[in-house]
Design a protein around this nucleic acid. Structure first.
Lengths: 276, 276
DNA sequence: CGATTCCTTGAAGGTTGTCAACGTTGGTGG
DNA sequence: CCACCAACGTTGACAACCTTCAAGGAATCG
């Protein structure tokens, strides 16, 4: 499965929460960028191919038309963190649309096909208003993903992070409409999963075995099979730490959007910094 | 100190690593946005004021001309993560320039002054090419910060994260030229620091006491005094876990930019996924 | 089939979280 | 002015989560 992926996806229909005033401009920008990618000649590469290197002058922008890629950051003592995982259809290197070099390395995680837009063409594209806005939109999408991962790294424990990851990939692949429900191919090693979620290989392995023994999800040989989607969602949301032990569900989030307060003039004030 | 902050900072001179072709456009966009902020009337608010609320329709864009703010995400069971800390001069809500609502809450961490651009004006601004590009640039700056924090949450231990945070704030404040070297005001509670770095209050407290006992930095009563900048930098970089114990400094990062490989045609391949 | 990479498992220890209590501070009101 | 209160800071004991260390098994490839 997962063959060369060429047909155009009508992606415009799902652009959730976009400011209405910008919708037209964004669609135009998307078309402009897509056209640029079509002009680029596809290139098949093996797994482990470096697309962006740190300290590389003027990296290009890529569209991953097939395969997976990861963005890695290295610490001087050898520790490493994977800051992003790209699936087929994603655009790699958006953060370099304005910066002319990267702090991280992007490599393909398996055999892949990329459509590159080289540096000069990219600079030219950025001067087009619609493309610029569309790239800003892609950037804010990327930011949203980063935020979710940061929150998970910050406050979720290992099994919750893994649940979140499995669910996230499943949803992203389903958006691209290339998934049979409840099962997909995950070409990451356990070491890479660990680097992505801030865990060691050993512990990732143990947690994956736990997921299997609990009959929540099977992850084996780069194949993910989700058995209990509900349980997975509970874990990923951070609602399952001790089978929902909060007796009074005590003062959970903020007043839970009780009042739509922020009418620019209506600054609200809540004395205690934390809802406790 | 830290009084109302009105004088224009010549910020253009430091725009590191920007694509040359976009420099002009960016400067223009910066001026346009600054003009928009000048037209907005400043507003002084207390600490704990909510600037952006989750599920709030059409949040505004703010410039924090004085004070600090934090962006918080809540988990259903009460855990919380601080996904961003804004200091005076920062722009809050960039991620909503294109999205019309937020997943997080932004509140001021102390008395502050904000200059709001309300939603409609913002939508209009985004249709201006230069402003759009400038906002994209701000977004990629924010992404860089998020990446650093994510990497730290993923792979650095508590004291290293705290070192990174103390250093980061110091550098950001110094960029704004409102700091006497080695000392600044940090209006966050230890709980908030914990939420930012993925730690508990208790452990933040222990680590701060460790920093003091090691004479690296004093953090007390919202005042930070850096005593040993070098040590702090070592810790923050992740080079100090056991006083530099790596005997052969074995295969640290990737080949360390040995070859500038990425000439678009020169895809490199390194078999092992990890340099070990 | 050696060699390499990846996966798996166990034991031991360290970093961090949890629980619980007390000290400190700043504001409020009698 | 002092008592009180709430939020914040501090400390200790203990437990849990996760890492480290170590070693063996499974799969892939030339």
């Amino acid at each position: 499965m997962a063959e060369e992926f060429t047909k155009e996806i009508p992606r415009a229909r799902r652009r959730p929460n976009c400011r209405p005033a910008l919708y037209e401009l964004l669609s135009l920008g998307e078309r402009e960028l897509r056209r640029a990618f079509l002009k680029a000649n596809s290139r098949a590469v093996e797994g482990g191919t470096s697309l962006v290197a740190p300290d590389c002058p003027s990296p290009a922008l890529y569209r991953l038309s097939r395969g997976w890629a990861i963005r890695t950051r290295f610490f001087p003592d050898g520790r490493r963190a994977i800051l992003g995982v790209y699936v087929m259809g994603d655009i790699v290197g958006i953060e370099h649309a304005l910066l002319d070099h990267s702090a991280d390395e992007v490599v393909t995680a398996c055999a892949a096909t990329v459509q590159p837009i080289e540096s000069n063409a990219l600079s030219a594209l950025m001067t087009r208003p619609a493309t610029a806005v569309y790239l800003a939109w892609l950037l804010s999408e990327a930011q949203r993903r980063s935020d979710s991962i940061a929150a998970a790294l910050s406050r979720l424990e290992a099994r919750e992070r893994i649940a979140m990851m499995l669910l996230d990939f499943q949803q992203r692949l389903r958006q691209r409409e290339l998934i049979i429900p409840g099962s997909y191919n995950l070409p990451l090693t356990q070491q890479q999963i660990g680097d992505y979620l801030g865990l060691t290989v050993v512990h990732v392995n143990r947690m994956l075995r736990w997921f299997r023994s609990e009959r929540i999800a099977y992850v084996d040989k780069h194949l993910v099979i989700i058995k209990d989607l509900e349980r997975l969602k509970l874990l990923a949301a951070g609602t399952d730490r001790r089978a929902g032990d909060s007796p009074a569900a005590a003062t959970k989030a903020p007043p839970a959007s009780g009042a739509p307060l922020a009418e620019l003039a209506a600054f609200t004030r809540h004395k205690p910094n934390r809802p406790k």
